[in-house]
Nucleic acid binder design. Structure first.
Lengths: 354, 354
DNA sequence: AAACCTTACGAAAACGTTTGCGTGTGGAAA
DNA sequence: TTTCCACACGCAAACGTTTTCGTAAGGTTT
């Protein structure tokens, strides 16, 4: 459905440049530039005239020209696997916060989990649009193990900060959570409230965070002398269609708790359990990972491991800006910041009172 | 927690420019430029040499220089009120899709619902970083009714496309849904399954979409000859703390349905109703607005009005790019695209069989 | 009157491109 | 031998800044 409006000829007030001001005031471009910067080289009289004129015509220096001249853009490129994703957007929120404070602009691109798009975005931003990168790599990139675009960018002197889905082999700043430790404490929580038969819903192994969380789960079990049981482990292949996998996995299985490595698996498990006539948390306790919208608002609300996405973004941005503005000493060392996770207790793991 | 890695001196392979290639090959800059473009002016021999060299050194033209020269950036600026928001990110997804197809870059900024930040972001992007804007205005801007930054941008010849939270007074392209109509069909659906005492959970009036949806609700009631009842209308002030408001509103109220103007209100209503001992959908039917994560995964899953965010983004991007690349005729007319909403039936309004 | 110093400004280069036009070289035609 | 024309390339301007350096005008010292 469309409506079309006729248009009254708008009078364009094209952007005014130094050159135009100079011509108008019959002085040179350099005089205008200096006057606007309050240089003592220029007489007070001229300064005032120029500034008044500039204000009147709403002069704003052209960023592109400045970028070209200064050889820096004051822009941070952020590339994430998915834009429609609560965790990543909270990270972006953190990045923006710091960036804006420090006078940086933020360009966000989504790789859509595609290796090719990640490369394209990176090259595009690297060729003049951004001074440095904050990046969480695409699934495909993790699978393919091809990091030439990232290495190339770094070798051109542009700092890169990896977060969440990082790449161990790459020598650069990183911001992560201790996924294994978070998973371990999630599992510990289930053990501590008396659960013994704990299933895990995780991802296939090439997703680094999935694998790490699985490891944490196993570690917790070992510490409790509970033998690893393949039957309690489901590695979900197709996230978009996880319900079917979870359903057949859970069918008739004798468990008293589920640890899900993300929100979606957690709530899907609850739904499936409901349909199978089990109650959460009374029959089966559920714990998730990532403290997003679903966890907060679901019924029952989800006990979960918070990754503190905003903090991650803040730390990542700080690391990057330090690199961008720092001297040699800062430029030459690489940090890995590990953000502490925390257990957020809600109703999906209500303590059983027996 | 931090780890510091010592760093083996990286050998920087600084970005190579036309000038460097020219010097290396002992030809002029223009020859290099033309050779790379396969100009017939240049001998085949030279062309091949230049291209080989450029490839070897991974030459990529500098975007900034190109932008300066061409006076366009091939970049779309998107400004949204919140980045951590499912609907807005789906819109961005749509924008990116079209933009990438057409060779445009996308810069996303969040105004955080602040008027000042909206102005700053806009001015920053307008001074050279973007060719045009896709914008959903901040709450504060709607309250303040100060649109000078948008008008100014437009008068400088940069096209602006408004979406979702638009401003009627502004003459520019717009992409919206018919909020009132969507709300009306939501209400109609409730009426059609036999509900008679329908409450609405909406926002305060200065939020344009909230007001429009309230109007739609009222229109639907009128069509059924149901008198407007103030007692059934709750205008929520503090979204972050809506639970308390909803709780006291719903307490002891005799209703058989709730229409919530967003997901959060809807699921909060369900939670409150649960606590008050009522069942959804058996005692009270619920319908929401915006088809997001919560609606899809909640138990019961939510019947809702889908706004088709991705489509909105696609249309907005197309409108903008048409303006950017179009000739006069296209530049001089403004369209308002109305995206059709649709009713997504799920379990929160299961048909009562009586 | 010559030498000097301020003051106030302009010229030009630089950032990395693209492109219209000018030009030197060589060979072919006259 | 002269004239002409392709051919292959370089020059320079332009985009909008910033900044270094040069310099004219005018006044102040000797």
């Amino acid at each position: 459905m469309e409506k079309v409006n006729a248009n009254n000829k708008k009078q364009m007030k094209q952007k005014v440049t130094l050159k135009q001001i100079a011509k108008e005031l019959d002085v040179s471009i350099s005089t205008v530039s200096k006057a606007l910067k309050d240089s003592v080289e220029i007489s007070l009289d001229t300064r005032q005239k120029v500034k008044a004129f500039a204000k009147l015509y709403n002069y704003k220096p052209n960023n592109i020209a400045l970028s070209l001249k200064n050889r820096k853009t004051k822009t941070i490129g952020v590339i994430i696997p998915e834009i429609v994703h609560h965790f990543f957007t909270t990270v972006i929120g953190g990045v923006e916060k710091v960036a804006n404070e420090k006078g940086y602009n933020v360009i966000i691109c989504s790789s859509n989990n595609s290796f090719d798009k990640e490369v394209i975005n990176m090259e595009m931003l690297a060729s003049g649009s951004a001074d440095g990168f904050i990046l969480s790599v695409a699934k495909e990139t993790q699978l393919k193990k091809d990091y030439h675009h990232i290495e190339e960018t770094m070798s051109q002197g542009m700092p890169v900060v990896l977060f969440d889905r990082i790449i161990d082999e790459l020598v650069c700043d990183k911001v992560i959570i201790d996924d294994a430790k978070g998973a371990q404490s999630a599992t510990n929580h289930l053990l501590s409230i008396g659960c013994k038969k704990i299933a895990i819903l995780t991802t296939v192994d090439y997703i680094s965070v999935g694998k790490l969380r699985t490891n944490g789960y196993l570690r917790a079990l070992r510490a409790y002398d509970i033998p690893e049981n393949e039957e309690y482990i489901l590695k979900i292949e197709d996230i978009d269609n996880c319900e079917a996998e979870i359903e057949s996995f859970l069918k008739g299985k004798d468990i008293d708790a589920v640890f899900a490595v993300n929100e979606l698996f957690a709530v899907t498990a609850i739904r499936v359990l409901h349909e199978q006539g089990k109650r959460v948390p009374d029959d089966v306790a559920i714990i998730g990972f990532t403290d997003g919208i679903l966890s907060k608002h679901f019924i029952p609300s989800l006990t979960t491991i918070s990754q503190h996405g905003e903090d991650m973004g803040i730390r990542a941005a700080k690391l990057l800006i330090d690199k961008l503005e720092g001297d040699e000493s800062v430029t030459e060392e690489y940090r890995t910041v590990i953000i502490d996770t925390s257990l957020v207790q809600r109703k999906s793991t209500k303590k059983t009172k027996d």
